[in-house]
Design a binder for these strands. Structure first.
Lengths: 341, 341
DNA sequence: ATGAAAGCGCTAACAA
DNA sequence: TTGTTAGCGCTTTCAT
């Protein structure tokens, strides 16, 4: 099939080793030899077979990134950033999506394709803590995302409680008092929604107010449709909220859609804040205020962590699990742009 | 490091070949032997080294998918579908994004990582036809997307002219006459925008009308911001349009945003039709009518084509380049939901 | 500075 | 039915 080192060596009249030296920029090669080899390489159109190189070196230059859903703009944007960050380390990204299903996440976290990849970045949702603890030996893994685990793995996660607190405080500062939380979870296990809900509560308490738990609405998923349904649910009740803090932008967007359908104005009647800062939030009829995690930061930190882990392998250097918190900020747009009450 | 075939063979007291047979479900193995080997595999926690297997077989089970931008929901959704379609063939997807830059597309189309992948699905924008013709030997490649090439490669592309015609006709049927086209290109080279623009023209002609070329607005890119700017540009002129057909949903969404800012109603003042059917179009304050390409179909066709090409390699079976047109349909939503004039 | 040869883990002829 | 062995293309001691 392809042109191999041997072919080049034959053509250049040198040994395989010499060609290899040239290809790998080994310093001790005479310019003449290098020239001759280079010419042979060009003439034959030689390209190194990475598979063979990897077999020999035990590294592949491939990492897996497993996210819940590519259709979710937040994850799509993060994935793009991870691909770029990985490229800067000469790593190529294998993309998987798990639909947030424990089973699929399990398959990914446990050596699926483990011999092909040097490492793994996983953004788990359904996975249990115990699954993590029972993970068999395998390539280094770094966790990404807002579900707490406190397991033996590096984890890139923003300060969800703090971020939510700031968002809700912004609404309280606007004079809103009936601030709903959209996107809670029924499950008792650790869920990112719980953290943001805690932030919601703390914001009230910090302001000397008592949060009204009846304004907490759970959703099935994290999609626009879930937000739309949750909002409808809320509006069907007696007293309507004057503000909404949504688990994420998609839910917020869905909620805004319902508000418009019901003839309510945003932000006059109901102010809305989301979470994620997906691009679509900037271009709705009413642009969406949101908490913006630094996605570039997140991607960079995850890849850097993983690269470090990969490098540390074998060297026996013990490296405790780290919890790393990327930056975030509140972005105020039209959905809360209103004079103080 | 890992456990190899040899280790298992040693443990089970058989030869490497036998273990290999068991692992690969080779039929002629006695149940007892199989059992013994299986036990050894389990005890040792053996997992085949795919890199080695690939080196041997000359196949890796990896394919590259290169799209312009993961942040564009249309491409993100297509990418997700491709990953699923590939999984059904036991293929794993390496995702690249090119930003639509000729240079990056060139790197991808020409053997970048060519030894690691079995095939390549490329969605080019900046690439020239000549680049394609000069492509060196490499793994099979299938083209995806709406730029015409008529090169020596399989190409999955919907009937852009026909699809655009139907969309514009829908607007004309509504009684609209000043139907603008947003998202044209200045470049003279083949561009998907040209095809959709042709459909725009043909719809007028077919209705016995003369298209008003002053309603064609070019944009820099294909993003929401481009749509917003183009719409603003259009509204600053004397006579405003009563309908807009946008190159894609993002441009349409951006345009709608501008319309709202200017106090115009959709669809009463200006009806809008987009292209792509991204999910976000369903949840705006006014849901977006659009041309919906069958993304599952597109992904499946691309992967199937590629798999066929991969299989045909070496077998000398000549297989001419094919142009394959996936299905599409017009989805009418609120942005054009209005009584006939 | 360059060459010879071993071996990464696997599969596939060929043998037994 | 199972074992032996030769590579796939590359890197890497160890010689020279």
């Amino acid at each position: 099939m392809g042109v191999s080192l041997k072919d080049v060596a034959l053509r250049a009249g040198v040994s395989v080793k010499t060609v290899s030296n040239v290809v790998n920029d080994y310093p001790h090669v005479t310019p003449q030899t290098r020239d001759r080899v280079q010419r042979a390489i060009d003439e034959l159109g030689y390209r190194p077979n990475l598979t063979a190189r990897h077999l020999r070196k035990g590294r592949t230059g491939l990492i897996t990134l497993a996210i819940p859903e590519l259709g979710n703009p937040y994850f799509a944007e993060v994935a793009g950033a991870v691909i770029d960050a990985a490229a800067r380390h000469d790593l190529t990204v294998l993309l998987d999506h798990t639909a947030g299903l424990r089973e699929k996440e399990l398959v990914v976290s446990q050596g699926f394709r483990s011999h092909v990849i040097d490492g793994l970045i996983l953004s788990p949702i359904g996975l249990e803590r115990s699954d993590l603890l029972e993970r068999p030996e395998g390539p280094p893994m770094v966790l990404l995302g807002e579900r707490e685990y406190e397991g033996p793995y590096d984890h890139i996660m923003i300060d969800n409680v703090g971020a939510a607190r700031i968002a809700v405080r912004h609404l309280l500062d606007l004079g809103r008092r009936r601030v709903a939380f959209l996107g809670a979870r029924h499950e008792s296990v650790r869920q990112p929604a719980h953290l943001r809900l805690r932030g919601w509560r703390e914001a009230f308490t910090a302001a000397g107010l008592v949060p009204d738990e009846s304004l907490v609405v759970a959703t099935q998923g994290y999609d626009r449709s879930d937000g739309a349904a949750a909002m409808a649910d809320l509006l069907d009740r007696d007293q309507r909220p004057d503000a909404v803090f949504a688990y994420n932008d998609l839910i917020a967007l869905g909620a805004m859609r319902t508000l418009v359908e019901r003839g309510l104005r945003v932000p006059e009647d109901v102010a809305v804040v989301g979470f994620d800062d997906i691009e679509e939030g900037r271009y709705g009829a009413v642009s969406l205020s949101t908490v913006a995690p630094d996605k570039g930061d997140i991607a960079r930190l995850a890849v850097d962590c993983l690269v470090e882990r990969i490098a540390a392998r074998g060297t026996g250097t013990p490296l405790g699990p780290r919890l790393i918190q990327p930056g975030y900020r509140l972005i105020v747009r039209e959905s809360t742009a209103i004079r103080r009450a």
